[in-house]
């Protein structure tokens, strides 16, 4: 059923998106939405095209992407490691579990100033807050993945008399992989949010900073161009990761 380019629902979805964009454009052009507030989508697109062609913001875009990748990589690595350790120590896990469950209730960004004082206004402060935001998703996914390894697989490993490292590589890791991927997806999404938001609050470069700067200078054209860039980047990355995630989940359900 996935073989067709788009399902019926996919076509409707596309139609809905196109129609709402067109309606938005029409409302802007007709003057119902003042130009000082929002630009029509077509002008956002031309502005984005201009930004990409002139390379005016390349440094900011690059710095944001670097920070996102660095934070996501750190979160995935350490989140996985913490997850494995917690899984191996049930007593510690029982103690930490309530924190994991209510972690995302804490407004993490309120601690950004602390990191700014420690690291200065730099990429390191941004990466620190992004890691803080995304690592727990990875820890939780690792725990779920390890919990859901079917017991029959463990028994099979026992019958084959596998050593622990061999079992980890041949049985545990592949069995937990779909959940680990969900963790990677979430870590990436949270890292993106963390980086852009910190850049927005206080920083010297990056897309978030550029948008805030354009806003403060009433530079609507560049601001909406960059905003469109963020929306497209985030949607493309999340949709791609989500598609792979769904495939993996379906495969493990067979």
């Amino acid at each position: 059923m996935n073989r067709r380019i788009l399902s019926r629902e996919g076509w409707i979805r596309l139609a809905v998106i196109v129609a709402s964009t067109a309606a938005f454009e029409a409302l802007c052009r007709a003057g119902f939405i003042p130009r000082t507030a929002v630009l029509p989508p077509s002008e956002m697109a031309t502005s984005l095209w201009h930004i990409l062609r002139t390379g005016e913001y390349n440094k900011d875009i690059l710095s944001t992407l670097q920070n996102v990748v660095a934070s996501a990589a750190l979160s995935v690595t350490f989140g996985f490691a913490f997850g494995v350790v917690l899984h191996a120590l049930p007593r510690l896990r029982a103690t930490v579990e309530p924190l994991l469950a209510s972690y995302y209730a804490i407004p993490t960004f309120m601690f950004y100033p602390v990191f700014i004082v420690v690291f200065g206004v730099s990429s390191r402060a941004i990466i620190a807050i992004a890691v803080l935001l995304s690592i727990v998703a990875m820890i939780a996914s690792t725990l779920t993945g390890l919990d859901r390894i079917p017991r029959v697989l463990r028994k099979t490993a026992l019958i084959y008399r596998m050593s622990t490292p061999k079992r980890a590589v041949l049985i545990d890791f592949p069995a937990a992989a779909p959940h680990l991927f969900t963790g990677i997806k979430l870590a990436f999404a949270y890292a993106f949010i963390g980086v852009i938001a910190s850049e927005f609050i206080l920083s010297g470069q990056g897309i978030g900073y550029a948008i805030a700067y354009a806003y403060n200078n009433f530079d609507n054209r560049n601001m909406y161009g960059l905003m469109l860039l963020v929306i497209l980047l985030a949607t493309a990355a999340n949709t791609a990761l989500d598609t792979i995630d769904r495939r993996l989940q379906n495969r493990s359900r067979r």
Partner: peptide, 22 residues
């Protein structure tokens, strides 16, 4: 439901701070 779910999820994972000026 099927039509709107991916749209909602995409909106959900958007860094909404970006839209603050708007």
């Amino acid at each position: 439901g099927v039509v709107s779910e991916p749209i909602l999820i995409a909106l959900y994972s958007l860094p909404k701070v970006t839209l603050y000026p708007l």
